[in-house]
Design a protein around this nucleic acid. Structure first.
Lengths: 343, 343
DNA sequence: CTGAAAGCGCTTACAG
DNA sequence: CTGAAAGCGCTTACAG
């Protein structure tokens, strides 16, 4: 019953357009070597018949699965969620599906998990998200099997796989400067998960800004967090218990910034009156807390979309040679309500 | 290169096991009519060859896509996220893939979106999440095309499609009673999105508990929310501005309960000392805020898993006639730190 | 309980 | 620029 539109086949289109299946196939795959008039005839026939190619048949014949593996870990739900939505959207648009692979609990043998993913799913390509974008183990394996791969926010730019990233160090530098401009000199920084390159980049930017403004960094002002809420809460509490409290806390991501707000509440510190807080990402949580978080907006969704496009271009041989394989996107300081000016 | 394991085909297994492809296929699909000794031989061969069936070939031959449509809307990210994880996990386990369809921006023509999903994706079945589990428009369409469908947390139990739910009214009743037992009599309720059946069920349970305990409900004590943070925040503020403030607020879901905590902070009300707050769902946010939220734990993930199983059983003809098609799962009051006893 | 044959709807070389 | 043939790896009737 619901197959009424299913039984229109390439043969039908070919017949209606007065060409061979081969030509229809060419038009469908956007190959260049088709005469313009022929192309139009075929496209008209496709439209009239409401023809939809059968993905299974295509996959079988081409020995391609039209599946993309999406490797992730989940320290920060909001971040990964955005990434996923962007990738999913683009994939769907271009007739690919995502196979999600959560490598959370697998500290020991990431490569085993990857291997079984490759064997069982027959993915055509891989999207790597932090911290896997910089995992030598994974990168080596992928290169060995020559599986097209694209990376999101890697630190290592030399690796041959294309990527899309953001200048996280510069963004952290700018955010720190913003704080300094508002009169803050006692600024603490909650570090992110050490496996994630973003942690280092953001920390570096913070340190550089401090140096540039000749600001001293007191002891104990850079507690370690893990990018999740719990670790951020604990790190923030340490800071709040210090005799010489900071006037501003820069958390390496929004989840930890949100946790810092909670910790402030627990310790009866008013944000931003008593203590200013800024985050990084502009994840959904940034506007789901009160006060709304001042943070660095990363175009997370757009980064995922671009990465997915890059990969599919490569898979379909549509790679535009003029398009860069290394893309650095813009960020933006998003000023909301968690910073007080001391001037 | 990465296809080393791909080229093992059913033919190879058949040869090694000394049977026909037909028999291998039967074993693979767990059909009953295979002699036990034959089955073992085949299974051994599969194992030895590390044979993995080619999904595309199977789909093509069987005219089934092995795709399941997952319809959702996104008022509460945490809730949908859990649902998604559960469904995804089970689907993957049983060789199915999910096609996500977000019906958020499409107030007007849900049926158009559904129609195009059916035509373009050739899904074998559908998982309906709230509020679509009760959408007559969608239910009618799905029945018309006879597409196997399973529903999560519907209100209408009469519809022929199987479902899995929870006794939300009873859970709300219990939570309200819990508040009453702790001496609260001035209890407000922030209502959920009117399209979601859960909103009514939870509200009903709340009202019944009040009646059972002969507690009066002051005017303005049941502001309307929409299940998201923003609406919860506004509703909570209204309550906090009342001359006759409640001592406890029951938000119809955790997102709105979290917002209530934020609103309390804005208005310098201490939780739970000055005002108690409870939620519903036990979504991830419940423990990502401070104080940690007392709430009703719904087994969201498990519900999605069961629903997916139900659907795949039906799709593969494995439906166990003894298994109920209507499943009501257990809930649990999860007591954390946002309720103060007045006794 | 088991098998030989046909075919699912495409794409891939290979010609022209 | 276009086409005829073969085949991708399974499952579906149909026999026995």
């Amino acid at each position: 019953m619901h197959k009424k539109n299913t039984n229109k086949t390439m043969q039908d289109v070919a017949r209606l357009a007065g060409v061979s299946m081969m030509t229809v196939s060419r038009v469908l795959r956007n190959e260049m070597k088709v005469r313009e008039t022929t192309r139009r005839k075929v496209q008209a026939a496709i439209k009239e018949l409401e023809y939809r190619p059968n993905i299974s048949a295509r996959s079988l014949a081409s020995a391609k699965s039209h599946l993309i593996g999406f490797l992730y870990q989940n320290p920060s739900e909001g971040y990964v969620g955005q990434l996923l939505i962007g990738a999913m959207k683009k994939a769907q648009l271009r007739d690919y599906s995502l196979v999600l692979s959560n490598l959370d609990g697998t500290k020991t043998n990431v490569s085993d998990v990857l291997k079984s993913l490759l064997e069982s799913s027959h993915v055509d390509g891989i999207i790597l998200t932090p911290p896997f974008s910089d995992s030598e183990e994974i990168l080596d394996m992928l290169q060995a099997v020559q599986l097209p791969t694209v990376r999101i926010s890697p630190e290592q730019k030399e690796c041959p796989f294309p990527f899309v990233c953001m200048d996280e160090a510069k963004a952290a530098f700018d955010m720190t400067s913003y704080l300094v401009d508002r009169g803050h000199t006692k600024i603490a920084f909650i570090k992110g998960h050490p496996d994630h390159s973003g942690s280092h980049l953001r920390y570096d930017g913070f340190m550089q800004a401090l140096a540039a403004h000749q600001i001293n960094l007191p002891d104990h002002y850079t507690p370690q967090g893990m990018f999740n809420y719990q670790s951020g809460f604990e790190a923030a509490e340490k800071l709040m218990l210090l005799a010489d409290k900071p006037t501003a806390i820069f958390a390496a991501n929004d989840d930890m910034a949100a946790a810092t707000l909670s910790a402030a509440q627990k310790h009866h510190l008013l944000v931003p009156e008593t203590i200013s807080v800024v985050g990084f990402d502009d994840a959904p949580i940034a506007t789901s807390i009160w006060p709304r978080l001042t943070t660095v907006r990363q175009p997370i969704l757009e980064m995922a979309e671009m990465a997915t496009d890059l990969l599919i271009d490569e898979l379909t041989g549509k790679r535009d040679k003029t398009k860069p394989r290394q893309n650095t996107m813009d960020y933006q300081l998003t000023i909301r309500d968690t910073v007080q000016s001391l001037n």
